[in-house]
Design a binder for these strands. Sequence first.
DNA 1: CACCTTTATGTTATATTATTACATATGTAA
DNA 2: TTACATATGTAATAATATAACATAAAGGTG
Lengths: 137, 137
Amino acid sequence: MSSTHTHSKKSQSLTKNQKIVLNLLQNSGEALKAYSILDSLKKEGLKSPLQIYRALDKLVELGKIHKIESRNSFIVCNNSNCASNTVFAICERCGNVKEIKNSDLSEGVKELVKKNRMNVTRYNLEFFVLCKSCKTN
Amino acid sequence: MSSTHTHSKKSQSLTKNQKIVLNLLQNSGEALKAYSILDSLKKEGLKSPLQIYRALDKLVELGKIHKIESRNSFIVCNNSNCASNTVFAICERCGNVKEIKNSDLSEGVKELVKKNRMNVTRYNLEFFVLCKSCKTN
DNA sequence: CACCTTTATGTTATATTATTACATATGTAA
DNA sequence: TTACATATGTAATAATATAACATAAAGGTG
């Protein structure tokens, strides 16, 4: 389970489209959907879904962003070590997504992996929560 | 984190479509996609996607089946207590999905939840693995 | 540099996954 | 029975994602 990877040197050499998409995600600060990204980037000259998806795929591969599987959305990586193992808290009321550092999980995960004799590449954990803001309202 | 639910009484009163879909999933023993289920059930008279999705939604809600979010597929619940917290091992090579009992995880999860002061409804954990069969081949 | 290979781009078309809308029917409970 | 919630059938369409193909730019090696 040492499947973490640091941001590669290549991360400095992102292509034009990759930079544009990453930039949008960084500035938005929230999870965005591919077609919403496309809408936002029409003015930058990106006009086909595939241009977005290709950039997203690459950024996911590099660990710069993550896909929120249960929502088909993408969020910038907020984890200093850029682990391929991801943990998110997703508010079921407002949809807000927050990435969680996963260190506390490692013992339990190790146990589970050992007990099930799994050959794990990576994992993704999604918590469905009621976020603070939604709880108080 | 006591978010487990047992199969309700209502589970015996599944509707016709729900029974048909559940039955297919039980017999197949693997994760199936909605439109593949639809194809298989044309002979049973189910002919629209919505009939499938409605049955799937209900079965998920009842905890009889689970959705594999990263694959958009559905698998019958293999967990005796039918927890709403789910753990899967998904083979990246052959796509095979296996549900894992999650007891070993609870301590780590509790820690993580406490530390992040989360209000957790449920969680879903997906391990991406190389399964035994694929490992030996 | 010249050559080759890999990776990215642009574009069109299409595949896959999922929901809206609306009319009708069925189950359940007072 | 009436009322209400839940399920069904059907058609249309929305949302998400990929295939295929031509071209271009980047990176390595002689």
